[in-house]
Computed example of a mutant assay.
Amino acid sequence: MDKLNLLLITKDFSQWVHSEPFYLQSELSKISNLSVWNESGDILNILDEINFKPDFILIYLFKTGAPEITGLNTLNIPYGIYLEDLHHYPDKINEALKHENVKHIFTCYRDTFPQYYPEFCDKVQWLPHHVNTEIFKDYQKEKDIDILLMGATNSYYYPLRYKILLSYINKPNFVYHPHPGYKDISKDELNNVFVKERYAQEINRAKIFFTCNSIYKYTILKYFEVLACNTLLLAPSSDEILDLGLKPGIHFVEINENNFVEKAEYYLVHDKEREEISKNGFELAHKKHSTSQRAQQLIQMIHQILVKN
């Protein structure tokens, strides 16, 4: 099979607080003839300028972070879009999907998609989150943090995290690091915020890591990041999480607002069980949910689209 000529239209995420899109771009460059465009403009003008004939065009974070691209409905080349936080501007995006006659949509949140985009359920494919396993790995750090919570704890969006924070905030064996904010992180800031390797190493220090899937029931990136760092994840479950192969009691520990303290106390003292589940989760994340594997899956999806066309 010839390499796919792929045009990726995306913001430059190389210094972003979450570099998952940049890692995906890097993996795609290894398995396709990839051209990357970072600026807004008319798609036909862009194609003239780059002197590259793509087989497929992918717009990453359509209308919620991608460069603003016009003229898509004039294209003869197949194209698709990627959506992440589905609750962001659904009215605007629904209108744009219709106006641009979008036929191919990828999203990391399968089960929430019909709630916000019911008219496009026949056009969507599931592309779950993934981890760069060269960064999210077992650093063999001493497990000197009993319980760790990192990230946003807004009581509206993350009620379970907020309740966990209130329950543990004054406990000596609990560590909390707030979210550094959605922004580019300069080299000068890298030693002062938990991002990239420093973030992964901090996760790796913990025996137990709490998170939740928000009020939207998103299978957020932290599910994969924590597992990939060989740390026991305590978090809610869902049908989507089960379909990703994450089995409660095998790869992570399922919690709710009524039992998270009890579960944490149990696994803090039952070292063998904690370490076994952590190991299973680690192996699953590295085997099934690496960025390199997700890039391969995306290319396969695009090839299937092209065959049908």
Rank of each mutant, 00 (worst) to 15 (best):
K171D: 11
V102E: 10
E275M: 08
Y109T: 00
S186K: 04
G181A: 09
T211M: 13
V269R: 14
V226S: 03
H179Q: 09
M301S: 13
C121Y: 03
S40Y: 05
E197I: 13
K123G: 04
V17A: 02
K103P: 02
I57M: 00
G71Y: 06
E273W: 02
F210A: 00
D243F: 12
V131L: 02
A200Q: 12
K30S: 10
R161L: 15
P90F: 13
K141I: 01
L61Q: 01
N38S: 06
S19H: 05
S155F: 04
L7I: 07
F106H: 08
I302E: 00
K279D: 07
S32V: 05
T10F: 10
D122N: 11
I59T: 05
T231M: 08
K11H: 12
Q296C: 04
Y79R: 09
N5S: 06
K222Y: 06
D55W: 00
A96N: 15
S19M: 06
D184Q: 10
G281Y: 08
L7T: 11
L61F: 10
F209N: 04
Q115D: 04
S32G: 02
K308T: 15
H130G: 09
K308L: 12
P114Q: 14
N45F: 05
Y23H: 14
Q115K: 14
C121V: 15
